[in-house]
Nucleic acid binder design. Structure first.
Lengths: 365, 365
DNA sequence: CTGTTAGCGCCTTCAT
DNA sequence: ATGAAGGCGCTAACAG
């Protein structure tokens, strides 16, 4: 309950109280020229500023009668404690930073939702920042967050080089990074087991008789891509099928690139019978491209995506995919962060979320 | 450029400088026991605190030599001005609040993205808050935002009763509400022209020969629902077709409710030939339900959705829908808010975003 | 139980 | 061109 106190203050109670009597906010309040301060409340109540502070913060050492008197004045003056002023003293802001590459992408919005939900239950507010996949923008966001004195930071798919990321992370009291590894920096890390994901996908394709399986993957620096590729490769080799580098196509993992990727892979391997895509957006683009080439999914080529965003279930044929619990990933990251904030914990610690295969028509049993 | 200064401070420049020489953050910095303060920088530079403050804020009255000396010290001490302390003095925080019902919904994530993008360009950070459609949670979020002294608030689809919303809004220096009207409160308002949207949808259905058109709408209190309903009704009446109340089904506008809605409408009107849904999620659910009943879309029943979320283009048959530029809606709202912040503007002002019909297979030409 | 004294880190206003 | 004093609104440590 401590963290909640920090951000909501006693007013959490006031709100509930308000609601239970008439559902209407106190209408008998001052014309808000300038906010009422604690000093003013103290003056009106005929007590010292400290007494008000104690009431506001629910400290014990206040007689019930003065507490009531002060509360009364607070309520009908519409006073709200300034968390800015409080933060200046306490050096804590009850505020977190969350940096993602693209909010308007179901994967990240789900993740954001998980983080926010967990933050809310613990009395934190979060600054949501969108890098737009742009490192320069990421830099200026981090500066801004530092100036705001956030209590902790969750950084998702950072585009900064290792050394720079390490230096940036040191400037925050608690940091969790998602979908990236940075050993030796003492950070918290939340990861998807992409190796497993790749393995699940390919194993499934192999089990259902596919042998010439293409991979549309992301940029070489991307950790997710590396993991999925490694799962792909391992599954093939475990099955005694040689890994063929030409069947791996690298591109930005967005829908628009899929057509080009498909064309290329087909030119290399006309009798391709399986395709594993870095994410569902790419997979959906691939489905479209394959259809244009008159190739039937899944009869000719079976397609597997990654993430299981809502579209996956709705395209035709519906997409077989590696489902990642993105909300869960977000809340786990947040829990990790909270733990680090509370214990000033700077030990490395990792949580891993495992994807699971969801079989649909694009690559049926 | 003023707003940018506020949030990024001079460090915006520093970052760029850093990047242009080696792309690496200054590694020669102190062990961050406690943050370096301005006083400390002043001491090291052998100048007064004020001189440092002037340098940090790019004031003119500093000799070039001392400015350089101070900048040097700032850079290799890793000093960052505390925006908390600054806010306490200036009474401005450079932060905004954005409250939405559900981040993990493509409509709102697009809107959030528009707001964030616009906020970023103007040097503001935004607190993103999720009400989960829960009024009580909305209340406590607003209290929290007020304590944080945000400079402005964007409130999307508020669930608070008029009087309470009015009272809450008064507590913030600048407010824009989205998808809701509250005349007489002096707020900025960003709206979708839902009446037009309803009209477009129904006119299209009528033009393509549909006559018995059902409506799956949201709760009666919802402004969006009211607008769309009114457009539906008007289009029918303009065409000389009597409005039939039984063809309007009210439910929570989520996918899960669609099946029940379809069942009900079909029981009332077995030869239904058109269906207008409150949003695409519902429409998608309806498509599914209709298929289960062996009803063919669009041959038997033509279906029109609302929003044009990504799924709309991918379902089969692809959804005809009223496209709302949600990113645009978000940036417009943000611009409106900025204008109000800058001019302490409390006049009512409305921006309206018009939907447009996107014709696909579920209700073809 | 209540009040007093010191700041938190910075900016504003006035001197110099 | 620079500095000193005072205060933003609040809490932490001590008094009593």
């Amino acid at each position: 309950m401590k963290a909640v106190d920090l951000a909501m203050g006693f007013l959490y109670n006031l709100v509930s109280a308000n609601d239970s009597d008439n559902g209407t906010a106190n209408s008998s309040q001052e014309p808000m020229t300038h906010r009422i301060t604690m000093t003013e409340v103290a003056r009106r109540a005929g007590v010292s500023l400290m007494t008000v502070s104690r009431v506001v913060n629910n400290k014990e050492d206040v007689s019930e009668s003065t507490r009531q008197r002060v509360l009364k004045i607070i309520e009908d003056s519409g006073f709200r404690p300034s968390s800015i002023a409080r933060s200046l003293v306490t050096q804590r802001t009850g505020t977190l930073g969350l940096v993602v590459p693209d909010i308007d992408n179901p994967f990240f919005s789900g993740l954001v939702s998980g983080v926010e939900s967990q933050a809310y239950s613990n009395g934190y507010n979060v600054f949501l920042c969108n890098t737009n996949e742009d490192a320069q923008r990421e830099r200026s966001i981090l500066v801004s967050l530092e100036e705001k004195m956030i209590d902790g930071l969750i950084l998702c798919s950072s585009r900064l080089p290792d050394e720079e990321l390490r230096a940036a992370a040191e400037r925050f009291p608690a940091v969790v990074i998602i979908s990236r590894q940075l050993p030796g920096a003492g950070l918290g890390t939340a990861l998807i087991d992409d190796r497993l994901g790749g393995n699940l996908a390919i194993t499934h394709l192999l089990r259902t008789g596919r042998r010439r399986i293409g991979l549309i993957t992301g940029p070489a620096i991307s950790f997710s891509s590396q993991g999925r590729l490694s799962g792909y490769r391992q599954a093939l080799e475990d099955a005694g099928i040689p890994f063929r580098d030409q069947l791996v196509y690298r591109c930005r993992p967005v829908q628009e690139e899929a057509a080009q990727a498909v064309r290329h892979l087909l030119s290399i391997c006309p009798n391709l019978d399986g395709l594993f895509c870095h994410n569902d957006l790419v997979a959906v683009g691939a489905l479209q491209a394959l259809k244009q080439y008159g190739i039937c999914v899944p009869d000719d080529v079976a397609v597997v995506g990654y993430d299981d965003i809502p579209i996956a279930a709705w395209v035709t044929p519906a997409l077989t995919t590696c489902r990642v619990e993105r909300f869960e990933l977000g809340s786990q990251a947040m829990r990790l962060l909270l733990e680090r904030i509370r214990n000033s914990n700077h030990q490395e610690r990792e949580v891993v979320v495992s994807p699971r295969l969801v079989v649909r028509q694009s690559a049926p049993e």
